[in-house]
């Protein structure tokens, strides 16, 4: 199948701004799914609120556009009732880690089989450029006109600490790596957290004088490196890209099935 077979062409051109990284995440995700040859009826995409969450409207899978920060909770419900389906949950940085922070850590802790994509553009784009938990110290935003004094989360460290069994990071510049990581994340049996640095040229870029969308992509190229590279040793400020964690630990739905089996045995198949 061509990637165009996975989208709802009637909604294109999409509403994302010119040069928005979220379109590039969509592009990479469609290529990953095409390469894995998953039928579109076997995928459920659940999203919350924000620029990033509009992605669920453009893909021709089963899609749910739910409430702010709670996409993972809805996705957990879907997965528990239909464990055979592939769950993909794209979220923005604010959606995933501000209002949805608790859902994020607890879904990671449970290790339920789904792929969370954190599309990190370091800003609340849809509502006008307010700083987010990932904007970082010293950045500018419409709500931080004298620069932001909040420190940011490291999504990878947070996901690792919360117990996610698959943790990875890539950027929209590195589209081929991103596609490969998304493929591995979708195939992984357990909770996969993939952080994607995705440029927002309209708000984050403009407020922080980062230039054109292509300049922002060059920034990702210059300020990231592969995990454990020599460049990282020479310059510890570089952000690492790649798969940080890939552990085989018991998955929530499989364990739940075992509990059902056990309960049936002890009650002799009878319900009181």
């Amino acid at each position: 199948m061509a990637i165009k077979d996975y989208i709802r062409e009637r909604f294109f051109p999409h509403l994302w701004c010119s040069g928005c990284g979220h379109g590039m995440v969509l592009n990479a995700l469609l290529r990953a799914i095409e390469a894995l040859d998953i039928h579109k009826s076997d995928i459920v995409m659940v999203s919350g609120i924000g620029c990033s969450s509009r992605i669920s409207g453009y893909v021709d899978f089963h899609t749910m556009h739910t409430i702010h920060g709670r996409a993972l909770a809805f996705a957990t419900g879907v997965k528990m009732s239909r464990p055979e389906l592939n769950l993909i949950v794209p979220m923005g940085d604010g959606d995933a880690l501000a209002i949805g922070g608790n859902h994020f850590i607890h879904t990671a802790r449970r290790n339920i089989d789904m792929t969370a994509i954190i599309m990190n553009n370091r800003i609340y784009g849809m509502t006008g450029g307010q700083y987010s938990p990932l904007s970082g110290f010293g950045t500018m935003a419409t709500t931080a006109p004298y620069s932001n004094i909040d420190h940011d989360f490291d999504v990878v460290e947070l996901a690792k600490a919360a117990g996610a069994s698959f943790v990875a990071r890539s950027t929209t510049y590195h589209v081929q790596q991103l596609t490969n990581i998304l493929k591995a994340a979708i195939l992984h049996k357990g909770f996969s957290a993939v952080e994607v640095l995705s440029q927002c040229p309209e708000y984050f870029g403009r407020k922080n004088k980062m230039g054109t969308p292509a300049d922002m992509l060059e920034y990702y190229k210059e300020n990231t490196t592969t995990i454990g590279s020599k460049k990282k040793q020479e310059n510890p400020d570089l952000l690492e890209r790649g798969i940080f964690v890939q552990n085989d630990i018991p998955e929530y739905c499989s364990e739940y099935d075992k509990i059902i089996e056990q309960a049936k045995k002890t009650s002799g198949g009878k319900t009181k």
Partner: peptide, 9 residues
């Protein structure tokens, strides 16, 4: 690379 990177497909 243009095709892979195009945000607008």
């Amino acid at each position: 690379m243009c095709e892979l990177r195009c945000p607008d497909l």
